[in-house]
Computed example of a mutant assay.
Amino acid sequence: MQEALKEFMDGWADNGSGAKEVFTTLKAHLEGLDGVRFEFNARPGVTYSLRARHENQEKRPLFAMVDVIDDDPSDRWLSVCFYGELINDPDELGDFVPEGLLGEDAACFDLEENDAPLVAYVKDRLSEACANAAKG
């Protein structure tokens, strides 16, 4: 996983939107959370997915998915999705997506540029989802 992720990151020429920087920021945030493990799933031309799982999780294979949407490699953007019941969205910034995460209802946040307040909000959701996933 690490080699494929490193190869992807090394080959990613950001288009100025800040998507690569946001991905790096979210990845670093997840790495700082206790008990988190990763899976990287590359589907060139579709998505590159960083899937985060807490070591205590029993029911699901992940608690959050950070997708780099790759339908246009010169204009990549991020979609960060959570199982709907693992997070709150008090500012209603996410989109409800029925069956949007591995067949279950999801809350997804699209990040098309480096919007610092939105990135901070999504980081808070990552922490919240991780804490809830840690409960099993």
Rank of each mutant, 00 (worst) to 15 (best):
D89M: 08
E113H: 07
N114L: 06
W12I: 00
L33W: 07
E85I: 14
R43H: 02
E85G: 13
E58T: 15
A64Y: 01
L33D: 07
K27A: 13
E85P: 10
D105N: 15
A134R: 08
V68M: 09
V122T: 05
I69F: 01
Q2C: 05
V119F: 00
H54N: 15
L26Y: 02
N41M: 12
T47V: 15
L126D: 02
P61D: 12
L93H: 10
E3T: 11
D75F: 01
W12Y: 05
R76Q: 14
E7I: 08
G35Q: 09
T47M: 02
L62Q: 15
E39C: 09
G11H: 01
L111I: 04
D70F: 00
L78E: 02
A28E: 12
R43T: 13
A131G: 06
R43S: 03
G136K: 09
N132A: 07
L30G: 10
F8S: 09
G94K: 04
D72S: 08
L26C: 01
E99Y: 13
M65K: 14
S49E: 12
R53S: 13
F38A: 10
A131I: 06
D91W: 06
K6L: 10
R76K: 12
R60E: 12
N132E: 12
F109I: 02
D95N: 14
P90E: 03
G16M: 03
A4G: 04
R125V: 07
E112S: 10
F82P: 06
Q2M: 10
D72G: 01
L62R: 15
W12Q: 04
F23Q: 04
G45L: 03
V119C: 04
T24M: 11
I69V: 15
A116P: 12
P44D: 09
L93V: 00
N41D: 14
A107P: 03
R60L: 13
E31C: 11
D75V: 08
F96G: 06
